[in-house]
Computed example of a mutant assay.
Amino acid sequence: MIERRDLLIGGACFAAVGLGAALRPSRRLSLLSAAKLGPLIPRRVGRWQARNTAELIVPQIPGSLADRLYSETVAQIYEPIDRAGPAIMLLIAYGATQSDLLQLHRPESCYPALGFALEERHFTNLSLPADDPVPAVALTATTSTRTEDIVYWTRLGEYLPRTAAEQRLARFRTALNGVVADGVLVRASLLRNRDGPAQFKVLAGFLTDLVKAMPAADRKVLVGTSRAKRMYKG
């Protein structure tokens, strides 16, 4: 005779199998309409102009973690056209597949791994036309010789998660819909004197200008479809 406990255990096992099948992605979602992201990123952003430099080239080592995580990385230095103010470092990392094994790495984990201490961190919103802000994170990373202010955001499918927990939830929601989504991390940073004021507003203004300077049809790869459409209408 089958005991009730065995039925419960068996039922739980079948439920787990069913859930696993339901979470098995059946299609991909990519908001990158072009073959490459790099050509879509403008060299003129507001009052900043991209410098012709190889300083921020990110090498792709076959088989490395970065090579597996990201399909493409765009790195560039932008300088104020009037030479008034610091240069801004832009890094955009795009991954065609976001899963439990392959997912965007946030600066909160990357910078400490490189020996930086995180001294300040808070949430912020980047203002876009049509009153549809982008949820972003501002933080300061320091070493004994370097102080770097950073503003960044991430997109996973149509979600813009601000924390690792939100990122896991976004991945779960897309999986429930049978989707493997793409993802992007957009990060701007600059160096400043340790005793000087934080430059988060400068970085936020640069990133806002970056999105506005992109072709309207391609902004979705950075901010998602709905924000891009409302921005276009606005």
Rank of each mutant, 00 (worst) to 15 (best):
N52I: 05
V184R: 02
D195Y: 06
R162K: 08
R192C: 05
A75P: 03
F206V: 06
L156F: 01
P62Q: 11
D100H: 08
A217D: 13
V221R: 04
R24H: 12
I92S: 02
P129R: 09
L139C: 05
H122S: 12
K233W: 12
L91E: 09
A21Y: 09
G18T: 07
L139G: 04
D149V: 08
V221G: 04
T140K: 09
N193G: 09
D67A: 15
L114Q: 15
D182C: 02
S189V: 03
V151L: 01
E3T: 11
N52H: 04
V186Q: 04
L160A: 14
R47H: 04
Q49E: 14
N177L: 08
T147V: 14
I9Q: 02
L56M: 13
E166N: 10
Q98S: 06
E72A: 07
A35P: 01
L91A: 15
S144Y: 05
A50C: 06
A54S: 11
R121E: 08
K233Q: 14
V137W: 01
L31N: 14
A50H: 03
R47K: 07
G85V: 00
S71M: 06
E3K: 11
I61N: 03
Q98A: 07
K220A: 15
G115T: 01
S109L: 02
W153G: 10
V134E: 07
V179S: 03
R24S: 09
L31F: 11
A213T: 08
Q76N: 05
S189A: 12
A93P: 00
H105I: 04
